[in-house]
Amino acid sequence: VTGGSSAVPGQWPWQVSIVYDGTHVCGGSLVSKKWVLSAAHCFPREHHKDMYEVRLGAHQLDSFVPKAEARSVAQVLVHISYQQEGSQGDIALLQLSNPVTFSRYIRPICLPAANASFPNGLQCTVTGWGHVAPSVSLQAPRPLQQLEVPLISRETCNCLYNIDAKPSEPHSIQQDMVCAGYVKGGKDACQGDSGGPLSCPVGGLWYLAGIVSWGDACGAPNRPGVYTLTSSYASWIHYHVAELEPRVVPQTQESQPDIHLCRSHLALSSAPARGLLG
């Protein structure tokens, strides 16, 4: 996480660390005693599930404390539609080898139902042990980092990603994605946060609105973080884990248009007479 701060132990008790061959590679979110949600791109086909371990209840990655638990992975379910970075379906379900015991430091986050809608501008929080800047690792003892990020609509996010877009690197924000972050940059998720939670508060509960998926560098201007929209996969999750009940998210706040955040939109609309091309 770039531009964030250290969390307090137990503040995000659903955050897990996914370790491959002894090294932290991704984040994840605990959604029940035996299941964790993460990103599909954290589980390349050639990696065997026995090489993964899930650490729960951790705060500093470099200091293992009694309240933290570790589990091996019994099953990895990667969504069939995931192909490569930026494609749809960047979501994975992990079954733990044994259930965990909930505690002050290990608790599940709520899964939003399929029809859930979180308003533009809602202040959510992204957490993780990832880089603090492109290719700059979090320093030992690596405390969990947190960052409040406002949600940005898909339309506005597409508009932002078209500013100074490189033809060789087309980016499009798909139906199953949501953006969050800052137009001016400097505060964002980064490598190593992938798979971790975008936690959004509604009605006194935290919901897993998104899963850290991709972005252009970290904290670059006009390049907010892009997250897999968890509610798009409520039925896929329920199909594989029948006991997991997605929750209806109460509609508390109207979603306000946020297209004004995208400078290039203003340029286009302010000069139609000169026939500016899109």
């Binding site: 995000w12 008790p13 608790r107 599940p108 986050i109 709520c110 929750r247």
Partner: peptide, 14 residues
């Protein structure tokens, strides 16, 4: 359901 009923709550206030 008991487990899920406890979802989304962090005991440590900010």
């Amino acid at each position: 359901a008991e487990a899920e009923a406890l979802c989304g709550v962090a005991s440590q206030a900010r």
